[in-house]
């Protein structure tokens, strides 16, 4: 009995020691952005393409844009995209440009804590310094508001954020965005949008039990989206099989209309409304070209 007790005590001590080490484990790398000239108009375009405005706003609520999104219900709990207006207390008004860069590209809050991967920062790692500087300038044009959408409601043990460091080590990978000189420019632009900023794979890829995207299932669809939704397979093979042309896809990303005259649902309507409808026709065509090209 005593020995069992000692054993348990030893185990608990070991767990506590591991947790303490994990809590102290530094993550991320310092950033230096130099003196780049900001273009807020370009930054706003990127912020729409990246879904910042869509996810951090809730048009059905009475709150202003970017004061926080509706709850995202997952098996780990309910996540709320926070207020990212320049409010100093409830938004990102107290942040520096470097804080913003680290948050967006590395998923680390100014206080050093890792963000939950409901925030698709892995895909934003491909943003350039100029992209970050422009987006930061765009966020400065937003009126500050102290309103919020409430807090996350995460079940134990997922509420212990230092555990996310292990998650990062195991699952923080992103699909390729580096240009392939052998491909057309539009294909490369499409790849950068699909696999990077527009983060299509965040929904259109199956996840494992830990919530990590399964790399081999990239863009092959998911039937376990937050709230119980599904996202179809959007690989070139599947799109060809279901009769989608590049033209159909580009038009659907603008209008929400699918080839048969039905319109998107299941969350894709929001993506169109807040992101892809705002893109230039060239960018929608680039996305369509990349997705419909067999690799």
């Amino acid at each position: 009995m005593l020995r069992a007790g000692m054993g348990l005590l030893g185990l608990l001590t070991a767990i506590a020691a591991c947790a303490a080490l994990l809590a102290l484990w530094p993550i991320g790398t310092p950033v230096a952005l130099g003196a780049l000239q900001p273009d807020p108009q370009r930054g706003a375009y990127l912020a729409r393409a990246g879904g910042c405005i869509g996810c951090h706003s809730d048009p059905g609520s009475d709150r202003p844009a970017l004061t926080g999104g509706g709850p995202i219900k997952t098996s780990f709990g309910s996540f709320v995209a926070p207020n990212i207006t320049p409010d100093p207390d409830h938004g990102i008004g107290g942040w520096t440009l470097e804080d913003f860069a680290r948050a967006v590209r590395q998923g680390i809050a100014p206080d050093g804590r890792p963000y939950y991967p409901a925030f698709p920062y892995a895909f934003y790692g491909a943003l350039s310094d100029q992209d970050i500087v422009d987006m930061w300038a765009a966020f400065q044009t937003v009126p500050a508001s102290p309103e919020t959408a409430g807090a996350h409601d995460i079940a134990f043990p997922f509420d212990l954020r230092f555990g996310l460091k292990l998650w990062r080590a195991a699952y923080l990978h992103a699909p390729p965005t580096a240009p392939d000189p052998a491909r057309p420019e539009a294909w490369n632009r499409g790849q950068w949008l699909v696999n990077g900023l527009a983060h299509c794979g965040a929904c259109h890829t199956d996840r494992n039990l830990a919530g990590g995207r399964i790399a081999a299932r990239h863009l092959k669809g998911s039937d376990d989206l937050p709230g119980g939704g599904t996202a179809p397979d959007i690989t070139a093979t599947a799109l060809a099989r279901t009769g989608w042309t590049a033209g159909d896809l580009a038009f659907a990303l603008q209008s929400g209309v699918m080839p048969g005259g039905d319109t998107f649902g299941g969350g894709m309507g929001k993506v169109v409304q807040h992101s892809t409808a705002w893109l230039t026709p060239e960018d929608r065509t680039a996305i369509a070209q990349y997705l419909t090209t067999e690799n």
Binding site: A65, A138, T141, Q254, T280
Partner: peptide, 23 residues
């Protein structure tokens, strides 16, 4: 495709300027 008033310009997004979220 891409009429400026309907999309693309980013300036029609609603009450809060270029970053507005309203439809």
């Amino acid at each position: 495709a891409g009429h400026m008033m309907e999309n693309g310009s980013g300036m029609m997004g609603g009450g809060s300027g270029m970053m507005g979220g309203a439809q």
